[in-house]
Simulated scan of single mutants.
Amino acid sequence: MEAYASTSFVLPGKTEPLISIKNAITACALLFAALANTAFAELTTTQESAKTRGIILYNQYKAISATPFLSIAAEAGDHEAQYYLGESLRRKNHYMNPEARKWYEASAAQGDLYAMIQLGRSEKDLCQISNDCPSDQKQPIEWLKQAQNIAKPKAENGDAESMYIMYELTVDKNWLKRAADAGHPIAQYWMGITEKQGEGFFLPWQRQESIEKWFKASAEGGYPKGMREYAIFLGEKNDMDGYRKWNEKSALTGYVSTIFEYGSDLAHEPDLYGYPLDAVKGYALIYMLKELDGGGGMQADVKDQLQKISSKITSEQIAEAKKVAESWKETHPPLSFFPEKLSH
Rank of each mutant, 00 (worst) to 15 (best):
G296Q: 04
G86D: 06
R121T: 08
Y58N: 10
M288F: 00
F215C: 08
L203K: 08
L292E: 12
F32C: 11
V171Y: 02
C127Q: 05
L234E: 04
L18S: 14
P334T: 01
W205F: 12
T15M: 10
N93T: 15
A219T: 05
A73R: 09
H268Q: 10
T170Y: 02
Y189E: 06
Y104Q: 10
N97D: 11
S310V: 01
G77M: 03
L11C: 02
L89D: 03
A33F: 04
A147R: 06
L252N: 15
G120S: 06
N93W: 05
K173W: 02
G13I: 09
E195W: 05
I19D: 11
V171D: 10
A219G: 01
S135G: 04
E330W: 02
E340I: 11
Q307H: 11
R178P: 00
K249S: 11
L11E: 14
L89V: 01
I64Q: 14
L70A: 09
E87D: 13
E142L: 07
I129L: 13
A284G: 07
D278R: 07
L31W: 06
E156I: 06
K102Q: 15
D132W: 01
I141R: 14
Q208V: 07
P339S: 07
I150Y: 01
A284I: 06
A76W: 01
S218H: 07
I56C: 05
Y273T: 10
E2A: 15
S49T: 13
G13R: 13
L169Q: 04
A147P: 01
I55Q: 02
K303E: 14
G77F: 05
I259G: 13
Q299P: 10
N93K: 11
P98I: 07
I21F: 14
Q110K: 13
A321Q: 05
E16W: 05
Y189H: 03
G294Y: 09
L289F: 00
F260I: 04
I259T: 09
I129F: 06
L266K: 13
L277I: 12
E2M: 12
R178S: 12
T46V: 07
N157C: 02
T46C: 00
N59R: 15
